[in-house]
Design a protein around this nucleic acid. Structure first.
Lengths: 337, 337
DNA sequence: TTGTAAGCGTTATCAC
DNA sequence: GTGATAACGCTTACAA
């Protein structure tokens, strides 16, 4: 009774092999079974092209070997890279990745969660911005770059150390009057520690700095205005900028050059992320590089071992500085030069 | 009997509401049911936080509202953009996306297929390079950029017209001696039609052209050598190049400029894809832009309506030309200038 | 060892 | 219109 166009079931295999259902199950799952039985079953399974139905299996075992990845978008190199590494890492462990893109929309984030919960997935890895995200606690959950709740582990790069490192580098390379520029979501997240680390280092070193903090800004006007105020006759009275993303750093770089300010001669700029230019494979600017692959692996490993409840609430992975042409050290010219 | 830490089932809801299992099912699925019953059930469901178990449902209905997306990588802007749009489009139709990255590895492509088949997904959208990919016919399948088999629909940009368009533009803008450069997988795919269209147009117009076709090349040496042969004392004897990807175009552009050849003054270059630079949001070069969103929507729609067997075997979507600074027409300077 | 049968959470087919 | 009940494909006691 091989129904055409329908995948064969264990029953079909059992019938074909002339053994019982339970025996087939054991063979499929590698449990001890008589050698000749094993062979009969394997032959039958191959002949019929049998494939486990993991939904039926999951229904019994409550394990589906799939995890959801909730991420704003893939149209940004950092998110795309992260998603790529997470999917690859899950794959290596035989897990499937259920991808949800939310475009930074809090409602979409929440909806994604309930959608994937219907699928009885084994866990969720999410990069979200919804401050009142409702995550029920008995589903393994790992958040990236943001603390969602006390019981949910968070994985991020070491943003604080990254901010400090940026300040240190600027200062070491001769900058004396610094600017910090922050853009992005208005929801507080780990990412805000970039600024905190930067400011902390400046204070420790007694270096003057000014901060332009944009919460929920989609226009860069405030940054431009700030710079204009500090530039008289093409001469800026600052000489080092830390931008909290490479993207912002690119914009600032362009703006300054258009105004005749030389980078890195007059002003040094450091960004954050470590995005490589597609056209040249070079950094866009000197930057603090996030350890994307390590973050992906950490997120996956924390998620899949969450029964070990001895988890640290926050996994903060080491960053490194890389010269990219917008600072006065060794390093290739920036991509857009 | 509300078991702690475990999601409530229909049975729980039925008990809570004091109705039978079947009634709950009807309410959940919007089937006709007495008004007071409906209210009781809805109240109970909300109180318990009930969520459908779509695996159990799928087991019965053979419909899981999830499709697999098999794609080489997300670390390339074109693939990332495509994946983003496909996931978003599926989402809009209440489908989940199961993401598999294969890194161009034929074995991984095949393995992905069997992995996702275990999940009894509703269909597969795949961008693959494995020439002997084994896809069993009774699972809806849409291929992107490559004909997998006669029974499998293929979605792509109109590569042939794109190649023609590139030739036409170069010629219109004054180029007289053309070069075509092709790089990429050695598996024949729709993408090869870019060259065919280009050559066809050149022949029609009686314009001299030369082609450098690289199958399975990871080094660009052959391209560089070809150009060197055509350059004497910094003067090339060609004046227009069509590269089959923007990425290649970027490399060629850099190479020529390093050799003192002026682009677009001496030589015009047109690429293919329409990749935008992350730092500036500008095109890297003049290019044939793929209609990524339309391709995503087409792939999804074809997949989900595959019962209408009146499908064309090949959906070829219109491309457009966009100036990007490497041709002598209007348009912004290229990103890396 | 192998076979049998109950049950996972749904849907769907029945009588009522 | 509502409530039992069988069935979906599988795992897992338990009986043989």
């Amino acid at each position: 009774m091989r129904r055409d166009g329908v995948s064969p079931t264990m029953k079909d295999v059992a019938r074909q092999a002339g053994v019982s259902l339970g025996t087939v199950s054991k063979v499929i799952n590698g449990l001890p079974v008589g050698e000749e039985y094993r062979q009969k079953v394997e032959a039958a399974a191959k002949k019929l092209g049998y494939q486990v139905n993991s939904y039926a299996r999951g229904l019994k075992t409550n394990k589906t070997y799939s995890v959801a990845l909730i991420i704003p978008t893939l149209q940004h190199p950092f998110f795309a890279y992260l998603a790529d590494e997470i999917a690859a890492c899950l794959n290596r462990q035989q897990y499937r990745t259920m991808l949800m893109v939310t475009y930074f929309d809090p409602a979409a984030e929440q909806k994604s969660i309930s959608l994937v919960k219907m699928n009885k997935i084994d866990g969720i890895i999410a990069l979200t911005y919804n401050p009142e995200l409702d995550v029920d606690d008995n589903l393994p959950f790992v958040s990236i770059d943001r603390h969602v709740s006390a019981s949910i582990p968070c994985v991020s790069s070491d943003n604080y150390a990254g901010g400090q490192l940026a300040a240190r580098k600027l200062i070491e390379l001769g900058s004396k009057r610094l600017l910090f520029m922050r853009i992005g979501s208005d929801v507080y997240s780990e990412v805000d520690k970039r600024g905190a680390g930067f400011e902390n280092y400046c204070r420790m070193e007694n270096i003057a700095y000014e901060s332009v903090i944009l919460r929920n800004g989609d226009t860069l006007e405030p940054f431009y205005r700030c710079m204009d105020e500090h530039i008289t006759d093409g001469r800026p009275d600052f000489d080092g900028i830390f931008c909290n993303t490479d993207h912002l750093a690119c914009r600032v770089l362009t703006y300054l050059r258009e105004r005749g300010v030389r980078v890195p001669e007059d002003v040094q700029i450091i960004g954050y992320d470590g995005i490589l230019d597609f056209g040249t494979d070079r950094l866009y600017c000197s930057t603090i590089v996030q350890p994307v692959r390590q973050m992906a692996e950490a997120a996956v490993n924390v998620l899949l071992n969450q029964d070990l409840k001895s988890m640290p609430a926050h996994l903060s992975l080491p960053v490194r500085y890389a010269p990219g042409g917008t600072t006065r050290d060794e390093g290739p010219r920036p991509a857009n030069t």
